[in-house]
Design a binder for these strands. Structure first.
Length: 315
DNA sequence: AATCCGTGGTC
DNA sequence: TGACCAAGGAT
């Protein structure tokens, strides 16, 4: 017999049935997260998305609440010194995100009349917003129809559609096509689908310990139907932390965060034993704009605007 | 495209 | 106990 077409994968279950099952599950099991409440607004959604980049929900919750209370609008944050954003970021990790969120607030203040832009293209142009975050804000804050491909959704699709335990290390064109083809036509339904597939990945289709017994689409899951085969191919590399520059940067920045006043070099020296690595870490912090050097070897969190932003000092 | 960028919880 | 993992982005 001749194969005239080239179906590469198991035919996906009826998309409409998938949509219905996952969205119904979501309506029953979705967590009541503050950024999902109507009063969060687009700014609340955007702040949450920045904080949730590579940081678990439970650690974001308290910082998110303090942040929105202090800076309820983009303009409020834009008028602050960037160092205050870095300080308020606390121990969420990857503090460059705080700087980027501040810079995004400045851009929104200057270019968008203080309103978080609706258009995906404009969102994508903001600092700290990439393909995922632009789609997430457009979808969750404004109810638009965009493929939202985060690590959760990629894992759900890898298993349910492709039949592999894990998605590829980097997002592929095939994944984007799958996400696009599976996106419901109806705009509001597409936004619910995006949130629902993310939640399914976070609560049920988890990376190390999937709870297939609780999965609404287990019966049609390609990975399960294939016998839940283990990952094949090169081992997925996990990044080390202890002893790296990242750890040193973390020490240095923690000291500066916890001090209301600038710190002398001698104090920073106590945060790490190796002077070479210490100096390198401090250099990169300054280069990143996370630390501001003063004269006489004194350092503080940045009080001046990031380069590239306009300055309008009151005289 | 591979690497860098924090932090802390989980099993 | 240490590897794995968490709603990525920039270069």
């Amino acid at each position: 017999m001749t194969v005239t077409t080239a179906p590469t994968k198991t035919p996906p279950a009826d998309p409409a049935a998938l949509h219905e099952a996952v969205i119904a599950w979501f309506e029953e099991h979705a967590r009541d997260l503050p950024w999902r409440r109507p009063e969060a607004g687009a700014w609340g959604v955007m702040v949450s998305e920045f904080m949730l980049q590579q940081t678990p929900v439970n650690r974001v919750l308290p910082v998110y609440a303090q942040w929105l209370e202090r800076w309820p609008t983009p303009a409020a944050l834009a008028l602050e010194a960037p160092g205050e954003a870095v300080r308020a970021w606390g121990r969420l990790g990857y503090p460059r995100r705080a700087l980027r969120l501040h810079a995004a607030a400045v851009a929104i203040h200057e270019r968008h009349g203080g309103q978080v832009p609706r258009r995906h293209e404009h969102l994508l142009a903001l600092p700290g917003i990439g393909e995922y975050t632009a789609a997430a804000v457009a979808s969750f804050a404004y109810g638009q129809r965009h493929p939202v491909l985060d690590t959760n959704v990629r894992r759900v699709f890898a298993r349910a559609v492709t039949g592999t335990q894990y998605p590829p290390s980097a997002t592929t064109a095939a994944e984007r096509r799958t996400a696009r083809e599976l996106l419901p036509q109806d705009e509001a339904r597409a936004a619910h689908w995006a949130a629902a597939t993310m939640e399914l990945g976070a609560l049920v289709c988890k990376s190390a310990t999937p709870v297939c017994a609780a999965c609404p689409i287990a019966a049609s899951c390609a990975w399960r139907l294939a016998g839940s085969p283990a990952h094949t191919g090169p081992p997925r590399r996990t990044q080390t932390y202890a002893g790296t520059d990242r750890q040193v940067r973390g020490r240095l920045l923690a000291a500066l965060r916890d001090s209301p006043t600038p710190l002398p070099q001698s104090t920073l020296d106590k945060t790490w034993h190796d002077p070479v690595q210490r100096a390198r870490a401090l250099d990169t912090l300054v280069a990143d704009g996370l630390v501001e050097p003063l004269t006489n070897g004194v350092y503080r969190l940045p009080q001046t605007r990031e380069p590239g932003t306009t300055e309008a000092p009151p005289q």
